[in-house]
Design a binder for these strands. Structure first.
Length: 229
DNA sequence: CACCAGGCAAGTA
DNA sequence: TACTTGCATGGT
């Protein structure tokens, strides 16, 4: 049996395999920090292609700014974001996020980005419609904070490779990565993007794992060597 | 036709 | 605290 690998080696090996396979993802797919925030809310449990249509509607209306969105009635927001699903819900969530930025930071995302990570994360989690994944996506991809984003794909891939159980919490999975990896924004950025790409391509709910960059990925942790499925 | 997608909050026990 | 349910469009 091989010598047990450290968690750091396991996670970096997975990262290198995914990077080798897909190349850099250049995330988040958006033209501005505000567009990242809007996209983070609209993509909740929704395919990104649908989010693109919704964002295009907002752009076509010339409304992709804090000032414009702030004065847009919620019914109008709902009409624009309709293609992304849950449109009544997401219109309210969008409005709540925009109001928070306007009221707390005078609509200035650069001012917002100067607040320390942990304090900012708590603030975001207090906003209606912003949970852990959305908060972390905003922190990392819109504000440049070194935090690891955990999503359904992250969970699914780790579970399939026996690195975590089904009931592992968001925070535990986040700690798994953040305790083992250097806390660098470019690494966290690329790592999560690669997980999403790998998940979309090879690890959907209906399994389709052949040729996955992680197939045959030997995981040895705590002296127990497992074979990925 | 059924199932799924880069969650979240509110309700229930 | 830990589970369940509603929310909704568009692609496969």
């Amino acid at each position: 049996m091989e010598r047990p690998e450290s968690l750091t080696n396991i996670l970096m090996s997975a990262y290198n395999r995914m990077l080798q396979h897909f190349g850099p993802r250049h995330w988040w797919p958006a033209d501005s920090p505000l567009e990242v925030i809007v996209g983070a809310i609209l993509t909740q449990n929704t395919a990104w292609t649908n989010v693109e249509k919704a964002i295009e509607n907002i752009k076509s209306a010339g409304a992709l700014s804090i000032k414009k969105l702030l004065e847009t009635p919620v019914e109008c927001l709902a009409a624009w974001v309709r293609p992304s699903g849950y449109f009544n819900l997401k219109a309210r969530r969008l409005q709540a996020a925009i109001r928070f930025i306007a009221e707390t930071y005078e609509g200035d995302l650069e001012k917002m980005a100067r607040v320390p990570l942990s304090a900012l994360r708590k603030q975001l989690l207090g906003v209606y419609g912003i949970g852990e994944e959305t908060a972390d996506s905003i922190l990392l991809y819109a504000l440049g904070k070194p935090v690891f984003v955990v999503d359904a794909y992250t969970r699914r891939i780790l579970t399939r490779h026996h690195l975590t159980g089904q009931k592992t919490t968001y925070g535990e999975i986040q700690q798994l990565f953040m305790s083992a990896l250097p806390k660098e924004v470019p690494l966290f950025n690329e790592y999560h993007a690669l997980i999403v790409e790998t998940g979309k391509t090879f690890c959907r709910r209906t399994p389709l794992c052949s040729d996955c960059p992680l197939s045959g990925w030997h995981v040895s942790l705590a002296g127990v060597v497992l074979e990925s499925s």
